[in-house]
């Protein structure tokens, strides 16, 4: 069976690196993006199974990137998990996301949430 692809969109290098490490240890294949623009590109070309999206990012923030995903018929079904240090940002657009996690968030919860949104 092929590995599940998780796209991690996160502008803070230290956070993105360790999340990639954690998710790889849990058996996922990880694709990394540093802002919303890169996340959209990666979603189109690499078709991840699920996206873990930071909100506060340069160029295009997580909210805008998720809205753009939801507007694209071929991408709109990809589950998006918001993972943010500022959960209030998401409160007005809760319906865009399959789950919302507040940082700091333990890897166990992230992994369980990924499995939940994938229906496993």
């Amino acid at each position: 069976m092929t590995q599940t692809k998780v796209l991690v969109a996160e502008d803070y290098d230290d956070a993105r690196d360790v999340m990639a490490l954690v998710l790889e240890s849990a058996g996922f294949q990880v694709i990394e993006a540093r802002d919303g623009v890169e996340a959209l590109d990666a979603a189109r070309t690499l078709r991840p199974s699920v996206i873990v999206m930071d909100m506060f990012m340069p160029n295009m923030d997580g909210l805008a990137a998720t809205r753009a995903l939801r507007d694209e018929p071929s991408l709109r079904r990809i589950p998006v998990i918001a993972q943010t240090a500022q959960p209030s940002v998401v409160s007005g657009a809760r319906e865009l996301f399959d789950a919302v996690l507040a940082k700091p968030c333990s890897p166990e919860i992230l992994i369980r949430t990924i499995c939940d949104v994938l229906g496993r």
Partner: peptide, 25 residues
């Protein structure tokens, strides 16, 4: 206050994840 919360949570998130990773591996 929102910025403060963000700025305190972000490094904490990184540290938590690393500690979990080290313990797990």
């Amino acid at each position: 206050l929102a910025l403060l919360s963000h700025e305190l949570r972000t490094p904490l998130h990184v540290i938590n994840n690393w500690l979990w990773q080290l313990k797990q591996s």
